[in-house]
Design a protein around this nucleic acid. Structure first.
Lengths: 129, 129, 129, 129
DNA sequence: GTGGTCTAGACCACA
DNA sequence: GTGGTCTAGACCACC
């Protein structure tokens, strides 16, 4: 699998797993119907407890990303990608709202932000070369 | 004091305190040299344990926002506001970078983001009326 | 563990713990990635409260010596030993400056200091025999 | 008086007072028989509580540095300067011992220390010019 | 099992 | 009065 866990990441293990699976689905790396590795396989590969993997998979199932068929394994669900996109937009909206509140308190202007975004884009482009 | 705790806020209480004190300092409501309420006073006012208040104050001291002296109380430290602003910009930068990465995966365009920001601003203005 | 607490030492217990852990890291007894005893284990061993042990570990984490993850435990961080050494040199520098100022006021000569150092070294060597 | 108190100094107020009085005596600024300011005067001048000044003076008296005659005031005692000097040497000895222990743990050599001392002396000379 | 937060309550040093 | 340390004990999330 493509999943990478980090001790330095403050997110708990199970969340690192679900987030990366969600991203893979959103990005088309995992497509509806694809089979996910079994809980035991993934636990071994990531060197984490079976309980943790279980937690990640059941979260994903509860949120509708995957479907687990006992005895068969787990499969990517038939997800409305448009819905995924809108969920992400809602998340981003919350984050942006926080940023806007912060800027007001700290005398940060719109131009500061634009400069920041440009810098980020330049760095990103460089690292892609 | 101006501090308001909320059970709905997922942040622990001590963090709600530190965040609001930091904001007050950043916003000029608290100025260098100002005396903060004593740990006991604030505990009574916020109806939280002395220990929790102390935890908040210790954190603020460790991060350089306040100076606290036994027998005297706690005082806003002599902080470089410009430095505070730059730290916040760096934080925002990290967040924006994450957002940009997300947008790429989810086919979210720049225009989507602009629309989002406009919506937020309109809502904010409404609530100010 | 190698930690020894002393009632005679005027330092608070949590500081005795952090200091000894820092020394162990500096001296290579604890290496990056090593697992520290759990808070509960160490509390039992040292016969001190869980809270006091936790205080020590939190301090160590805030200062970058260890990384602690809920459910997993605490681990020695990936520390730049050279940086540690320079920090210590800076500390020593401050102390030496104070000593030099004192010697000036009290008519203490360089030779007095050299004699002192020699005495210390002889005593240290004796106790090593 | 020549006494300067600082909030940033981690030493408690009363100790900042006693230390500076002791230094003044050692340095000859205060000579045996000299009258010290009254407790009330000094409190006003340093903007500290009378209790704190009292504590400082009684400490100084207990350690033999000053003599307080009720109704007359406090006077610098007839101190054996040689004894003072030896006390300071003992203090320095303890500090040096700690430094030496530290150097061993952090791979700091004698030469590092010599370089340090030279740097300090050069800086001190510069600032005297 | 692990750590993270919050609680109530005691004792000490400092002002 | 102030803050600093240490205690016992509860409840929660994570592994």
């Amino acid at each position: 699998m493509f999943i990478v866990l980090s001790l330095l990441n403050p997110d708990p293990m199970y969340k690192q797993v679900t987030d990366q699976v969600k991203d893979a689905i959103a990005g088309g790396i995992l497509k509806p119907g694809d089979k996910l590795p079994s809980i035991r396989e993934l636990s071994l590969e990531l060197k984490i407890s079976i309980i943790t993997t279980k937690r990640a998979y059941s979260d994903l199932e509860n949120e509708g990303y995957i479907i687990t068929r006992p005895g068969l394994g787990s499969f990517v669900a038939d997800i409305n990608k448009e819905k995924l996109r809108e969920e992400k937009l809602a998340e981003i909206s919350v984050t942006l709202l926080k940023i806007i509140k912060t800027t007001e308190k700290f005398n940060i202007t719109r131009d500061d932000i634009f400069t920041l975004v440009k810098e980020i884009e330049e760095k990103t482009n460089e690292s892609h070369r």
